[in-house]
């Protein structure tokens, strides 16, 4: 299941930052650093995660969206 979540998360990130390909995204590197994303992108990512998985990432938990791996773990444990 985790693998499916990861694939979806990567797809959502590429949708937000189409300059990148899923295979180029490091699972453990900070998303802001490697994709040059900002709070608007993080907001959109949280919205899309909610729409896709039904998981609400409140603002107090936004730190869980800093890397792909942390994001996947958060989704998996809150579904």
């Amino acid at each position: 299941m985790t693998e499916a979540i990861q694939t979806t998360v990567l797809d959502l990130l590429v949708e937000l930052a189409p300059e990148f390909e899923a295979g180029d995204i490091d699972l453990d590197e900070d998303l802001r650093d490697q994709l040059d994303i900002d709070s608007m992108d993080i907001h959109q990512l949280a919205t899309r995660l909610y729409e896709t998985f039904g998981v609400d990432v409140p603002e107090s938990d936004r730190a869980e969206l800093t890397t792909v791996r942390r994001c996947v773990a958060y989704i998996a444990s809150n579904r």
Partner: peptide, 13 residues
């Protein structure tokens, strides 16, 4: 923001 779903939340900007 805590009282509405994610699509209706606002950024400080």
């Amino acid at each position: 923001n805590a009282s509405v779903p994610p699509p209706e939340r606002l950024l400080p900007a």
